[in-house]
């Protein structure tokens, strides 16, 4: 009887130790993942990368609105991106650039009307510099736009286009 009790006590103790050690090993693995910035075991898709990297600072502009040569130029100048440093590691930059260029205005996925009025080598770096955008938004071409507390910037599409992206 006593031997049985001691055996079951031992079994419980051993089980507790095994469980505790397992939890600690799992917890350590998890904390290492968080520390290395890899909390998600799935590699991010190109769209997720565009949303997280480009979308950290501005609305995620549709790649369909600029020709591929514009996206190439923009991605080549991330170290001075409209006055700010937006450099990315080479692997992330390449995946984002591939996505933008393969969905650009001059691809089968693009919006060909955004090429209207653009010469074959014109390389606008802003959607607001395309002839189509300027024809559609004459009021936003007035000086002073972008300095007030209202729409803040002509680049702030979601200020007027509710639903384009959450207006934040």
């Amino acid at each position: 009887m006593m031997g049985g009790l001691r055996n079951s006590g031992m079994r419980i103790s051993i089980a507790l130790i095994v469980i505790s050690v397992s939890i600690m090993v799992l917890a350590l693995q998890r904390s290492n993942q968080v520390y290395a910035g890899q909390s998600s075991p799935e590699p991010a898709s190109a769209v997720q990368l565009v949303n997280s990297e480009c979308g950290a600072c501005h609305m995620v502009y549709p790649p369909q609105f600029l020709p591929a040569r514009s996206w190439r130029a923009i991605m080549a100048g991330l170290n001075k991106h409209f006055g700010e440093i937006a450099s990315l590691d080479a692997a992330t930059a390449r995946r984002i650039e591939d996505f933008l260029m393969s969905n650009a205005a001059d691809t089968v996925n693009g919006e060909a009307e955004f090429l209207r009025g653009l010469g074959p080598t014109d390389t606008p770096l802003r959607i607001t510099d395309t002839p189509l955008w300027r024809a559609i938004h004459p009021k936003l071409l007035r000086s002073g736009v972008g300095t007030g507390p209202g729409i803040r910037s002509a680049a702030n599409c979601m200020s007027c286009h509710k639903g384009t992206e959450e207006d934040d």
Binding site: S13, L16, I17, S20, A27
Partner: peptide, 26 residues
Amino acid sequence: LSRAALVSVALVFGCGIAMATSGRLG
């Protein structure tokens, strides 16, 4: 053995608390 088991369980609780801040502390 039973004391070892208690220590193990206590360690798990301790690690749990530590982990909440381990990212930033790291």
